[in-house]
């Protein structure tokens, strides 16, 4: 039985019919046809599906869709400005080679954003902890950590 839920998605109020057993990732990818959150495992072990719900980075592949009712969801699609200007994190990932194949990138950036929203001045360890659940097979994390660190610096100075 489908039920209607309403929530804020990337600053837009939306109402949508869902099956109660769906995950948030299913809603995003399969129903709303958004390509940003990726599915790397579907069982909460890779972080590719990370989005922000009410300020917290969560694995949307595990997140029951019914629980987003009334909440505020941000995905990678909601990060750049309307005129296409990239969020400093996005810019920094491009500039510092935080992206290789890119499959972990959406999730990485969302985890990092949740961190920087709460802690604009993170230590390297804070950064590493924030992306501990995001697996990257390409980069060895070095340039990802650097991308996040440099974005944080830039955001602080503007």
């Amino acid at each position: 039985m489908k039920r209607e839920i309403a929530f804020t998605l990337n600053n837009e109020e939306i109402a949508v019919e869902v099956e109660p057993n769906w995950t948030l990732l299913y809603l995003l990818r399969e129903v709303l046809e958004m390509t940003g959150a990726k599915e790397g495992c579907g069982v909460g072990e890779c972080g590719a599906c990370t989005v922000i719900v009410d300020g917290n980075a969560i694995s949307s592949c595990l997140y029951p869709v019914m629980e987003v009712e009334g909440k505020n969801v941000t995905t990678i699609e909601g990060l750049s400005k309307e005129d296409g200007t990239l969020h400093p994190l996005q810019q920094s990932f491009i500039e510092n080679n935080g992206v290789q194949c890119g499959y972990c990138t959406s999730g990485m950036i969302m985890s990092a954003k949740a961190l920087l929203d709460k802690n604009p001045d993170p230590t390297e360890n804070d950064i590493r902890v924030s992306i501990a659940g995001n697996i990257c097979r390409c980069t060895g994390y070095v340039q990802i950590v650097e991308s996040i660190r440099k974005a944080a610096e830039k955001m602080k100075n503007t």
Partner: peptide, 19 residues
């Protein structure tokens, strides 16, 4: 030179086989 050619990978618009 930055990887600007792959900007879709940071905006979520890159289409992989799964999409």
């Amino acid at each position: 030179v930055p990887r600007t050619a792959e900007i879709n990978k940071v905006t979520g618009r890159a289409v992989y086989i799964d999409e």
